[in-house]
Amino acid sequence: MAWLADYPLAAAVLALVALGGVFGALLGFAAERFRTEGNPVVDQINAILPQTQCGQCGYPGCRPYAEAIAAGEAEINQCPPGGEAGIQALADLLDVEPKPLDAEHGEEAPVKSVAYIREDECIGCTKCIQACPVDAILGAAKQMHTVITGECTGCDLCVEPCPVDCIDMIPQAETLKTWHWPLPDPAAGRVEVIATDRLQDRAA
């Protein structure tokens, strides 16, 4: 090895190559050993989505939509049930500009609905049962069906397949349990502008 001292340039190059080799091997090992299963971003996006499984975004369920967003194939503003709050959360997560909800996919419902089957009209065809993405409809062939209200996400998917149109989407009424104090309305009395500004507004 003593001859290396006579060739400082070769020594330096050799040392660097050796270092590169060692760290490369280390990184390669770590990449294999600590490999992440699946795409964690998809899970994070999926956690924000409302899990209505309604398909209004154009994908068959929330997870496929999450995958499409993660792959850059879908916009973040295609989920009406999630609404503006959902878009904001997605924008924060992905560090992009929030966009207004795409009207093409529907509008945000002000009140959540649940499906209701008019049971005396039900013919027991099981078509709605097959359509329900969360198994919230109970029944059997030629037997009356009914919706388990607590499990219904209000996705609407059962309404279309019903051959006798006996399914209604009923907006959920506010109860003592769901009611809460509203935020005080700043417009109702809070003065944000200086009095003279307001006079100018009026003059204009």
Binding site: N46, Q51, Q53, C62, P133, V134, D135, E151
Partner: peptide, 17 residues
Amino acid sequence: RESEKADHARERFEARQ
């Protein structure tokens, strides 16, 4: 409450799948 409900719905959806 809503996020709990969403988690529940996701579990049911995945179980159905």
